[in-house]
Nucleic acid binder design. Structure first.
Length: 513
RNA sequence: GGUCCGUUCGUCUAGGGGUUAGGACAGUAGAUUUUCAUUCUACCAACAGGGGUUCGAUUCCCCUACGGACUACCA
């Protein structure tokens, strides 16, 4: 029987989610939707020391903003609740016990000092890879080296202990990664990982395998940083007797910093000159305890569609020439086989370009709605129709919605200054006279459409024995104060004849002085 | 150091034993425009190096170099 595809995104709530994490969530989501499966969100909070308040909520808000929908998780519940590992604590113990009973795990009583001493000893002896493993465990204090009754007594006396996996000495561990093909690791390179911590919490490794099994996960899609521990996970599935339903692994290439010197991390914050978080994050500085703010894509004016489209292409592509993909397009086209193996760097130019594309594709009515709201905060009331005209005119010049409002200012404020370069080059008595005449005509013009205005202007200017090109720049400055901007005829049309005429007259007076 | 992963234009990438090695972003130039921008057109620009295998390797294999990840009672 074909199993239902079930994938999970399993972040730990130690802070905001960075874009690499968002991409991992995205690929999981795309696969789930493509294959008609389920997407789960599981919170991996087994490290109580690293818990950051608000991080969990942030993760859910960020995914929602991105359009990544969760089928089962802490908000929506599901057949395998709870979806927060700290709440599943009692479930892990029995599996650790099962491993001990079957001889695949053991108790270890070593203190932090013991471990440090062991590593120091091994390093001094120039052992290539100092670790707690099949060799060194013979020298440590654990249930393999201590007499049985002493172990029993230690356990009963409440001594601190951990449970470690007994990794075989000589064995090849292999698994077929969906992206990388067969990966083979020798067991001697894997250490006896702690499964249960002395505080009674499982480590990531145990909790992860137990939960993925219990939650019937079919595909584990995660970052490449997990590749080295994948063999350990394979071993756990085997020893727990779950190998037959072990999920398929896919290790995603890393997202690198723009200079390629390492993987992007949440600590990069705003240091890189672009947001690394989907949403703005309010945190506290680890050293000073001062509140900090890290910028987010949402607050910077990025549209979620653009952000997601861009992110999807960082490490994946459809093999066609198409660049613009809606979420549904991505779902329809995505296959894990087309995810690349090599890491990708972040390209700021390209996200901006994507944002421009999506912004321009938005209906004018929607852009107008934004404009109205934005201008309202400035105390300006703008009718829908006018806002739409403005939006249509300026959207080609905008990267972010905020640019729309910026460009729209000229319609609501007369400039108090005039571009000096244009004035010195293009402004003279005949030009001023022609413009004054034009302003005069404009007040009674029957046709104030862009074309009508242009016809009138041409008529007036040529009537004065001049060419249009001689006055246009001056006219622009007279009307807007600036040397550059959107199409002048459209500006004058939206402004209306009376306002345009007044502005021209004002400029003529001011610049004559 | 050890283990693992990776390497096509500046960036994201397509391709794959015989190709003018394709696209997008960025850059440059031109056209359009009253201006800036947009748009359009063109240009620039890459198979890390060395060995094999082969009639032929950018493509397959090996080595080297470089880059990265991991190497916690963190995830």
């Amino acid at each position: 029987m074909e199993r239902e595809v079930r994938v999970r995104f399993a972040p730990s709530p130690t802070g905001p989610l960075h874009i690499g994490g968002v991409r991992t969530a995205l690929y999981n989501y795309l696969l789930a939707r493509k294959l008609g499966g389920k997407m789960l969100l599981r919170i991996e909070d087994t490290d109580q020391n690293r818990f950051v308040p608000g991080a969990e909520q942030y993760i859910m808000d960020a995914l929602r903003w991105c359009g990544i929908e969760i089928d089962e998780g802490i908000e929506q519940g599901g057949p395998h609740a709870p979806y927060r590992q700290s709440e599943r604590k009692p479930m892990y113990r029995q599996y650790a016990q099962q491993l001990i009973d079957s001889g695949h795990a053991y108790y270890a009583f070593d203190t932090a000092e013991d471990l440090d001493a062991m590593r120091a000893r091994l390093t001094a002896a120039k052992v290539p890879n100092p670790q707690y493993n099949s060799i060194t465990r013979a020298q440590m204090r654990n249930s393999l080296t201590l007499p049985e009754d002493e172990v029993k007594q230690l356990l009963e006396s409440g001594a601190q202990y951990v449970i470690r996996l007994k990794v075989p000495r000589k064995e090849e561990i292999r698994f077929n990664d969906l992206i990388r093909g067969w990966v083979v690791v020798h067991s001697s390179a894997v250490d006896d990982k702690v499964l249960m911590k002395s505080d009674g919490m499982p480590t990531y490794h145990l909790a992860n395998i137990v939960d993925d099994h219990l939650m019937e996960i079919t595909h584990v899609i995660r970052g490449e940083e997990w590749l080295p521990s994948a063999p350990l996970h394979v071993l756990l599935y085997r020893y727990l007797g779950w190998e037959a339903t072990m999920p398929q692994f896919a290790h995603l290439p890393l997202l690198l910093k723009p200079d390629g010197t390492g993987k992007l991390s949440k600590r990069d914050g705003d240091k890189l000159g672009f947001p690394v978080f989907p949403l703005e994050w309010h945190g506290t500085d680890a050293e000073t305890g001062q509140p900090t703010v890290s910028s987010g894509y949402r607050e910077s004016g990025y549209l979620p569609e653009a952000f997601i489209n861009f992110l999807a292409f960082l490490g994946w592509n459809p093999g066609t020439q198409q660049e613009l993909f809606s979420m549904q397009d991505l779902i329809d086209t995505f296959t894990i086989e087309r995810v690349s193996k090599s890491p990708a760097r972040f390209d700021q130019n390209k996200v901006r370009w994507y944002n421009e594309q999506y912004l321009r594709a938005k209906p004018d009515a929607e852009l107008a709605h934004y404009l109205i709201q934005e201008l309202h905060t400035q105390g300006l009331a703008v009718p829908q129709e006018k806002a739409e005209q403005i939006a249509a005119l300026v959207k080609e010049r905008a990267t972010f919605p905020a640019d729309l409002a910026k460009e729209a200012q000229l319609f609501f404020q007369r400039s108090t200054t005039y571009d000096e370069q244009v004035i010195s080059k293009k402004w003279n008595a005949p030009v001023a006279a022609a413009l004054a005449a034009f302003a005069q005509e404009l007040t009674t013009a029957p046709d104030t459409t862009p074309d009508g205005i242009k016809a009138l202007l041409t008529q007036v200017v040529e009537g004065q024995g001049m060419k249009l090109g001689q006055v246009l720049q001056a006219l622009r400055v007279a009307v807007t104060g600036a040397a550059a901007g959107p199409d002048l005829m459209h500006i004058m049309h939206i402004l209306g004849a009376p306002e345009t005429a007044q502005r021209i007259q004002l400029a003529v007076e001011k610049l004559a002085a």
